Simulated scan of single mutants.
Amino acid sequence: MDCSTKVHHIRLFPGNRRGWLAFLLRWLIIALVIGTGGFYVFRMPGRSYDLPLKPLTSEEAGLRDRLRSHVRTLAGEIGERNVWRYGALQAAAGYLENELESSGYAVTGQHYTAKGKGVQNLEAELPGLNANAGMIIVGAHYDSVYGSPGADDNGSGTAAVLEIARLLKGRPLSRSVRFVLFVNEEPPFFKTGLMGSLVYAKRSRQRGEKIAAMLSLETIGYYSDAPQSQHYPFPLNFFYPSTGNFIGFVGNIGSRRLVHRSLEAFRRTTAFPSEGAAVPGGIIGVDWSDHWSFWHEGYPALMVTDTALYRYNQYHGPFDTPDRLDYDRMARVVAGLARVVVDLAQK
């Protein structure tokens, strides 16, 4: 049987003037669309601080010491904490409850069962002056992934919640501020019905609670001044610095206004490098924490992060230990976040 093969020649570029004009116009439109989208997504208010850091104030030094103490207790003395080390998970919950109570808060637990174990989210509230203004939630997960003591992930965020609660105690604010410590953020619970923050967010939706903003504090303790110490998922690498010395504010498109207001407040009040992004939630890493649960229930939420695995090579590993964190910089960030919460709570 006689078979013949047809070869199709693909023209990569136009062959005449009219074709070139159409070709250039098409790519100009594509460039404009990409540029406009990038402007909408990546343009942020204010400017990142880029001068040498000033010495810590006496208040910031005290904050640094308390943050270090919390992380050392959670990731050092208690260590890995999850349902597979149930005693440690319970010890962490007990420590957090005691710390919030010592700051003057009444603490309530949201109890449920996971893997046959009783687990709980913990919440404490600073009542606002306007009951109809909605609330701000400041949250972090206190469990650690299997096999890791979880100093940065997420002893750092948990310690920050404790200290922001202490800093704001007795502050008259328009909106209520609720401090929530979530269980079961890590796999295999992440994005399942047993994820602590999703259990909590669903209850908030069922109750009709008005949540004006949710801030998820997730891995905020590691910083580096080394060149090329910062990496990103595509295409964020084209828009952000390659030195991992900043704190990031990350939200989805629906939370763009919240990202802008939070970053503007941080940059206006805090001398520390910062970056922000309101990007599609499908970009890898953008939804990797408890803010995802609040997006799921239709609430505006963002993640505050040192970018975790995109900067920190001990992420989810056995050497995510308290000695690897930078508590001086962490104190600056937490003090700044307290000011952001005050700004958000003053409707």
Rank of each mutant, 00 (worst) to 15 (best):
Y112R: 00
L215T: 00
T219H: 13
A160R: 03
N121G: 00
G281K: 02
E97I: 08
E99L: 00
A271V: 00
P241G: 00
F13M: 14
E163P: 04
L74K: 08
G128I: 12
Y49E: 04
D65Y: 02
P45G: 09
V286R: 13
A345F: 10
W288N: 12
R171Y: 12
V341G: 01
D343I: 07
T321R: 15
A226T: 11
E60F: 07
S69C: 10
A301W: 08
L344H: 02
G193Q: 05
E264P: 01
V259S: 12
V71C: 08
A212H: 11
L173W: 00
A93H: 01
T307F: 13
L28N: 10
A278S: 14
I164R: 07
Y105D: 13
T5S: 14
G196T: 10
S224Y: 12
G336T: 00
T270R: 04
Y200E: 08
G276L: 07
M44V: 09
L302D: 02
E275G: 04
L12T: 07
M330T: 05
L51P: 03
G298E: 11
S58F: 14
D328G: 08
P318D: 14
G62P: 10
G147D: 13
T192L: 02
L74Y: 13
L217T: 09
I283N: 10
V342Q: 01
H231E: 13
G285K: 15
Y240P: 06
L56C: 06
L181I: 05
V33I: 15
D320W: 01
N252F: 04
D152A: 02
I137T: 04
S255P: 12
E163V: 06
P172E: 15
L325N: 02
E59I: 00
G37P: 09
A114P: 06
V180H: 03
A114E: 07
G150I: 05
Y223A: 00
H260K: 15
I220H: 04
Y49N: 07
V334L: 06
A91V: 03
G196A: 04
G128P: 11
S176C: 01
Y146F: 15
R166D: 08
P149M: 06
S148N: 13
L63I: 00
T269M: 01
L181R: 06
W292H: 06
Y240H: 02
S229K: 02
N237M: 11
E297K: 04
L167C: 09
A265M: 07
A277L: 05
V71W: 03
F249I: 00
S216L: 02
D153E: 01
G208I: 08
Y327V: 03
K169Y: 08
G281T: 00
E123L: 12
Q90D: 00
I164L: 04
N16T: 01
L67W: 08
R85Y: 12
A226I: 11
Y327A: 07
Y146E: 14
A131D: 15
